[in-house]
Amino acid sequence: MRLIFPVLALLLATGATKPVAMDLKNPTCPEKPDWGVAKAMTLTAADRGGKRVLIADGIIDSRLPERLKAAIDADERIEEVWLKSRGGDAQAGNRAGKVIRSYPGMVTRIPAGWTCFSACNFVFMGGDRRFVEPGGMFMVHMFTHTGDRDVIEISVDEGTEETTRLIGEIEQASALLASEDNDFLIRMGISRKLLTEVMYRQQAVATKENPSTRYCLSQDEVRKYNVVPMERPAG
């Protein structure tokens, strides 16, 4: 027993856990990101660590902003929104972020092991205060509507007419997106360099020479770009 306890203490002190496998194509990101279920985002109120939180898990659909507001209004004890998502509808992501910002003091959080990707970035940035826990992934890409394949897949399921409508809007919506993103970042207190130095420098399409299309910000980078503010962001 005298030998066992020191060994256990050493393991705990050194954090000897199984390392997370990284993606060879996107080396800053995990090989198997935990970005939630492949269906429209669910919103579940729960008690975690003495706090009332809203767990947002899944694909961002066009109705999320309205559903998100209804969920927060239904439970006045909610003080944090925890996010796990592979993205989805870009404009709905922006609007959902604005919904969160309309609640003074509302916190957004990416817990350890969870991934917030694509349109989820903008939902997260709506938080009055924001936290990316060590091991949590704020994953970005070249932000375009055509990159949001899950939205297209959902529209295909809804029928030919919906798919045709979506494809017809892609070019117009993408042209407006850069301006909307820039305005959103300013309003949320995020550095615009997040767009110019990170998001828009990622490849939209993988090539044989450079297969990387995604980038996960480090703890230093989420602070550098004020994704996780050192001070309270401007409202």
Rank of each mutant, 00 (worst) to 15 (best):
C120E: 13
G147P: 06
E161L: 06
E171D: 11
R149A: 13
D181P: 00
G87F: 09
R63A: 15
K84C: 13
V123P: 00
M41D: 01
K208M: 05
R130P: 07
I110D: 07
S118K: 10
R95H: 00
T144N: 07
W114C: 05
A175P: 00
Q203Y: 02
T14Y: 02
K51R: 15
G36T: 07
A175F: 06
A45E: 12
G159A: 09
Q91M: 11
L54A: 01
Q172C: 02
L8D: 00
G126S: 08
A71M: 05
E162H: 13
F131D: 09
V107E: 11
T115C: 14
M41L: 01
T163R: 15
I55L: 15
F124H: 15
A175W: 00
S155T: 02
K84L: 08
L194S: 10
I152H: 11
A204G: 13
D220M: 07
M41K: 12
F124W: 06
V20Q: 04
G93Q: 12
A178Q: 11
Y225Q: 07
D73L: 14
V132D: 11
G87Y: 00
S118M: 09
L10F: 08
F143C: 03
D75G: 05
A96H: 05
P111Y: 08
T28N: 06
E76G: 11
P6T: 12
A204D: 04
P65N: 11
K69L: 08
L217E: 03
G159E: 08
S218V: 05
A16V: 12
G189W: 02
I154N: 12
G113N: 06
D47C: 00
A45S: 13
G50S: 08
L12Q: 08
T108N: 03
P211D: 05
E162M: 13
P211L: 07
D157A: 13
G126D: 10
I78F: 01
T44R: 09
G189N: 05
T115E: 07
D148R: 11
W114N: 09
M41S: 03
T108K: 01
K98R: 15
